[in-house]
């Protein structure tokens, strides 16, 4: 009987952890979306690695 009680407690704790994590990710995701609407990110430019460098580093690896 003792083992079944321990298993039940572990199961309950596991459920609490899973629900807690889901709740955190739900709230965190919601906050991120609200932040995104209220403070839209500035349009930052993204520069890609120059083609010559890509080729050079590939050649060095070979």
């Amino acid at each position: 009987m003792v083992w079944s009680d321990i298993a039940k407690i572990i199961l309950v704790l596991l459920v609490i952890v899973i629900i807690g994590n889901l709740w955190f990710h739900f709230v965190d995701g919601l906050l991120e979306k609200i932040k995104g609407v209220l403070f839209p990110p500035k349009n930052s430019v993204w520069h890609t690695l120059p083609e010559e460098t890509k080729q050079e580093t590939e050649e060095t690896k070979q």
Partner: peptide, 13 residues
Amino acid sequence: VSRFNFGFVHGSK
């Protein structure tokens, strides 16, 4: 780092 704490459940992202 964002932290969360719900009694038994706490952690960070």
